[in-house]
Design a binder for these strands. Structure first.
Lengths: 205, 205, 205, 205
DNA sequence: ACGTAACCGAGACGGTACGTCAAGTCTTTCG
DNA sequence: CGAAAGACTTGACGTACCGTCTCGGTTACGT
């Protein structure tokens, strides 16, 4: 006996509509911004009835989260073999700088930045969505940094008593904050500096 | 020569209404959250005409920004002599840990956290407001950390070639991100660790 | 080929709402008067969204015009066989006096008078609505008088060179003006007198 | 002890403001129509504070009524000796036709027609103002017709048993209704016909 | 092969809040 | 102290979207 509240029959779902909704949602967020993106607008642009959106998602933010996850997966596939893993050349600083430079590029691509920023903002204020955003998008990425740091610990390049989950925030969070809150400019030089400071510390040796 | 679009005659403004609007706005954000706080609701709660709000502010976010700045100023005054300055006991680590612990407390006070979070969220998506939020609230506070770090540089506790404006982000941004995006728990232990990592670096010495 | 500005899909329209709106509009005009009747009030009383009114009508006056036309049609149906036709007993004076006496009664029934007066007033100042009011309500009624006068001409009771469309105004317009502009009292005696004066003229014979 | 609600000290009243308000009110009604004429607009156009209007009048309609009365008086003065009286040449039909032709001209002069129509409309719906409009503008004019008819009765041109107050409506009201409600065109020929029909009646002699 | 049960596009529905406008009141400033 | 200026409270306006609820139509099984 299926629950009354469960999603409708998934097997009959129109893949065409799903794709059109994702495309419309991402396009609208990029074009007019998140606040002016409306469910009504997404439905119209996707050539879809409003109810088709409400049948499968609970809110505008929900749609966008799925659309963005879908986008990320597609991007990952397009990127080929090692889609999302931090290289391990043995040179920790160089590896981190490389990944952060790629992130800088990504953050400046409007197609990626607009929905990402919108979801982050919504997550700040809507805790439930925020937790899903973090769990499905942010944490997996952070975990890659943690893995790389653990590897560095085994190689003796990072002290053994360091908590990798916290350590990674030393260079990731500053970039995140500058980007989200416009508290400063973003550049390769900046992220390189973050890695240097974080690895070597501020105090004289 | 007053511009046609400038705000109306400020000298005639009702201080009573201004205060009531601030109080109502902060109270509502705290009680029902930012999205459910409406201009109409603020006006009603403040016993003020809606037009009186639109006469002086352009949006809900604008009102809240001013209300929150006002709150901060009052809090600063109430805090007495050294309202917003980081102590300088000579022990950099201890001083930073102390201030961050105070910040942790503040971030857990709902009266302060709700509007702050709302403004941060709005600023993420509304760049114009975001820049004002940063310029009027965030940067002044960050500058205090920069000052303390400069003092530490003079005392030889921080390397001279370090850029204080970037260095401070090593411990401030992680806390900010955990708070804003719920990427992890917040505690005294956590901020203490951040300061230790940031000052000493991750690499073995 | 439907015009872009045409009313929405009429076949899907809710008859229930339409009726409720008419009832509410007529009731409110009767109770609080036309100027204090608001679209918002009609919607609330009808248990209907405001947008449902604006979807189908352009203004308060438009709603009221349709509501009143609907009322007239219902009254006509209720009146039975010969709903709106002037009797033709052969005695022109008696027939006209009878109809005018009925009109006097109608003009003193508040349920009928309030919306009628409101529409007339609006029509005086809003030419577009005025023309519709006249075309759909006033002229059809006047035409009945013209018909009766033509019949009287064929019977030799009215001179053949008389223009019936003007002639009818001799007894209809005075009543209309007294009612609309409060220029004098209204009674059976008054309308009887009008008919006598109009048929026989003022000059001695 | 003066009542709180009495008008303020009339002797100190600014004639300059009073005139400017009248001019502004009449101009605005002519230019944008009655509904779009606002007290705020009148005050602005007259270079006067809004309160100066509310001090001396109770409503927009009140202002306009006084403005129109003032205009009528000025017009009357300008017209010279016998400002408002119906000529008495002994030929009743000719005298009435002449006056009605002049009225036709007046009704087509926008400077006169716009405020007049506006006041009539307001009077239809606002009984209190309507009665003042009628008493101060309409009835005095009707009385002139009544006087002329009484004179005709003394001359034996109108039957003695005719009530002049009702008789005059036979030709005045039709013109009024056509003008107010757009129920038909207005012309010299039309008003001439009205006089003929009214004096001679519709029935064959 | 055919009913019947779902999804689908469309869009009307009852609502909430928006941002604007004007009403009429109240307060401040000036002559 | 009257008048100008204009800020105030109030409340209707007409618009934009919300999330729900029909409406036909078109698949896509299940018997």
């Amino acid at each position: 006996m299926a629950s009354k509240e469960s999603t409708p029959d998934v097997s009959r779902r129109s893949e065409r509509s799903r794709r059109a909704i994702f495309d419309a949602a991402l396009a609208l967020v990029g074009e007019v911004g998140y606040p002016k993106t409306t469910v009504e607008g997404i439905a119209a642009r996707a050539g879809v009835g409003k109810q088709t959106i409400y049948r499968w998602w609970r809110s505008k933010a929900d749609v966008l989260l799925d659309a963005f996850l879908d986008l990320s997966e597609q991007a990952a596939e397009a990127a080929g073999q090692a889609p999302y893993a931090i290289p391990d050349t043995g040179d920790l600083a160089a590896d981190l700088k490389g990944v952060l430079r790629a992130t800088v590029d990504e953050l400046q691509d409007p197609a990626f930045a607009a929905p990402s920023r919108a979801l982050a903002a919504e997550g700040v204020v809507n805790e439930e969505l925020g937790r899903r955003f973090v769990a499905r998008l942010l944490l997996p990425q952070l975990e890659l940094y943690a893995d790389r740091l653990r590897s560095a610990q085994r190689a003796g390049q990072v002290r053994a008593d360091i908590d990798p989950r916290i350590a990674l925030e030393l260079f990731v969070s500053p970039l995140a904050q500058r980007w989200l809150q416009h508290t400063g400019p973003i550049s390769y030089e900046y992220t390189d500096t973050l890695v240097d400071y974080a690895l070597n510390g501020l105090a004289p040796r």
